[in-house]
Design a protein around this nucleic acid. Structure first.
Length: 280
DNA sequence: CGTACACCCTGGCCGC
DNA sequence: TGCGGCCAGGGTGTAC
């Protein structure tokens, strides 16, 4: 599930129960997820205060007062479940696929659940996090200043892959995933098969603001999920969102008077959804 | 080098 | 109700 907006939503949900709070216990219930957990992970988390919760791309970064940062990746199916926040909210017993359970000062229990186990956790010195293997090759944040038209032109003009594949490349832009790339290309009316080196300048200029808009709108939708009391079971990582093309194969295009049909194709092994009429 | 694909893993859904 | 096949929002390793 989690692309940048979902990860940001999870970060915001965790922030009030983690930031400034001490980790009282860290229950590590299996030795690994995608990779082995770092040595002595439980000891290195226990009794440490979470100074700050940050996000880089699809990673959540928890800076500890020990000088280390806990790096969290949710993979495809990772979720964070919060329980025990208030007096009438009882601590959740471990469930199937709960792999790491943190009990926080203040009473919250955070359960990291990941059925497919593509997620990951690691610990690294906060000072040189940027050189960490998982973070070193990431491109700029799409919502940051480093990401702009001239940057994108430079990175795209030398590539030959389809624009869909290029926007999924985390070394070019960090945080877009399969859903939002499809949505961005629909919004800009660009054919996902277009080779990056043949994109014209107006198209590249459209991409930058469209990427920001799509991500910001999704973050906003996630934010309203956090405030929704019906969603108050504390499960973070999923929220309702209306997609224009993703998952809408063979449905009609929602653009007024387009009359096109949404098609699904496969590009470098991933599904691409696009309108066969208005994306060219 | 860049690009394309198999693969890691579990679960849900669909058709028979 | 069971079973096989296919699908899944991520990222890496490997083969061309």
């Amino acid at each position: 599930m989690p692309e940048l907006p979902e990860v940001e939503t999870v970060r915001r949900g965790l922030s009030p129960v983690m930031e400034g709070k001490k980790i009282l216990t860290a229950d590590i219930r299996r030795p690994d997820l995608r990779w082995p957990f770092p040595t002595n992970m439980s000891e290195r988390l226990t009794n440490k205060i979470v100074v700050k919760l940050r996000r880089r791309s699809k990673y959540i970064l928890a800076d500890l007062d020990s000088g280390e940062t806990l790096i969290i990746h949710l993979g495809m199916s990772g979720r964070m479940q919060i329980s025990g926040r208030s007096h009438d909210d009882t601590l959740l017993a471990p469930q199937k696929h709960d792999h790491v359970i943190l009990d926080m000062e203040g009473g919250a229990r955070i359960s990291f659940n990941d059925a497919r186990r593509f997620g990951a956790m690691d610990l690294a010195p906060t000072e040189d996090l940027d050189s960490h293997k998982l973070l070193a090759k990431l491109g700029p944040e799409p919502l940051g200043n480093e990401f702009n038209e001239s940057y994108l032109v430079n990175r795209l003009q030398s590539k030959k892959s389809p624009i869909k594949t290029a926007l999924l490349d985390q070394g070019i832009i960090a945080g877009l995933g399969n859903i939002y790339v499809c949505e961005v290309l629909f919004r800009t009316q660009i054919d996902p098969k277009t080779r990056t080196d043949t994109l014209d300048q107006p198209d590249v200029n459209k991409l930058v603001p469209a990427i920001r808009e799509v991500l910001n709108e999704a973050i906003e939708a996630g934010g309203s999920t956090l405030k929704d009391h019906r969603q108050a079971d504390g499960e973070l990582g999923y929220f309702q969102h209306n997609f224009k093309v993703y998952g809408r194969e063979s449905m009609s295009c929602q653009r007024p008077d387009c009359g096109g049909t949404i098609e699904r194709i496969v590009q470098s092994g991933r599904s691409t959804f696009y309108c066969n009429q208005c994306q060219r």
